[in-house]
Simulated assay, not measured.
Amino acid sequence: MPMNRPAAAALAAILCLLTAACGSSSDGKAVDATAEAAASKTGYPVTLDNCGQQETFDKAPGRVVVMNGASVAEVSTLLALGLGDRIVANQQTYGNSEVPGRAEAIEKLPDGGVEQNDAFDVPRETMIGLRPDLVLSTTAYGFDEKNGFATRDQLKDVGAHSYVSPQGCDQDTSKMTLADSYRLLRDMGKVFNVSDKAEELIAASEKKIAAVADKVKGEKKPKVMVLFSNMSMGGNDFSSVVAKGIYNNILAEAGGANAFENASEGSFADLSKEKVAATDVDALVVIGYNDPDPAAYAEKLLKEFPQWPAARNNTYVTLSDSMYLGPSNDLAVEKIAQMLHPDAL
């Protein structure tokens, strides 16, 4: 059956794209227009400038490896975007979550049979054997050859893209803010052609946080101690106390302030018991990283420092993934605000 002229023209355009054998006008505009039209329909190619390296995606990745990085930012972002089926090996978990069902969903993801190296992540040879087309790392540490990891160039050589999350390029997360959680969502939305979903999540989060911030505006800002439960990062008794980073941005939106913000130039302060005892703490935020009972740790601290206003009023909240980079910071803002300003909400 003969084709009508529009149908024949459309088929010719498709064949031209597939074979790259068609001629073009003298200035190439006809071919460019056809390519642009095809790209607008598929959403590809997509190019990200990531830590000074350009990553161009011609299609959505289908074999994603999520490195550990003591984070759940990347795996939670993929799950929030409905992309869990793209993950072939996930090394991230906090053990619990403020989002109902998320911890269980993470637990069910494949781990790729990975035996972590001494740096607690995916060794180079194992990574290459997983045949990824995208590898996600919280910081550039995950692509450092001296730590036994595959470099970004080595991954590129086997056809894999790589991505370092916002503020992770120099492994210094002290400047991380809520905007970085949104950037991670946007970047993954572009990479997987689900930008509409990413923008929907961002808009909902911004709306919830703005509503809370408006209610606590003008209230006195209690001094809050934020720390990870039962975790040691330095030589002192309190080495997992938060000083700077996204945590402070969350506290500010919830109507609080970090009691130890000036204790360190980096993300964490390594503090003595005497320093902690000498600081007025109005409230505690205890982050449970694979700790089954962070509340017990919080209660232990309140007993250890009875002079704190937080101890006298039993003021604390336990959180997990919502207090870190990721798609659920609005939940942390809400829960902290409810603790600090119960009459305002």
Rank of each mutant, 00 (worst) to 15 (best):
Q92C: 00
A298Q: 09
P294F: 05
A9Y: 09
L78W: 07
M323W: 03
F57P: 08
V285E: 10
I250Q: 00
A254Q: 11
D214Q: 07
D144M: 10
S162N: 07
C51V: 08
L185P: 12
N193I: 01
K273N: 09
R63Y: 08
V99F: 11
V317A: 06
A35K: 13
P309K: 08
G159L: 00
K207V: 09
G288V: 11
P222R: 08
L251W: 06
V31R: 12
A39Y: 11
K244F: 01
N90Y: 00
V317P: 04
L271A: 06
K190C: 00
P306T: 02
R102G: 01
S40L: 14
D180Y: 00
G326H: 14
K244Y: 13
S240W: 06
M176P: 00
G82W: 09
G129Y: 11
L178I: 13
L227Y: 15
A310N: 07
V276Q: 07
G129E: 03
L284C: 13
S328W: 09
Q53S: 10
Y163C: 01
A150M: 07
I128M: 08
V224H: 05
I128K: 04
D187R: 01
K217S: 11
K175Y: 14
N68V: 07
G52R: 10
A150F: 08
A278C: 03
A211P: 05
P132C: 09
N193P: 03
N290P: 00
V317G: 03
D27G: 11
F120N: 13
V88G: 02
A73C: 10
D111L: 07
T19N: 04
G82H: 04
K175D: 15
S195K: 02
I287T: 07
S25F: 12
Q91L: 11
F260V: 07
Q154Y: 10
N290C: 12
P309M: 08
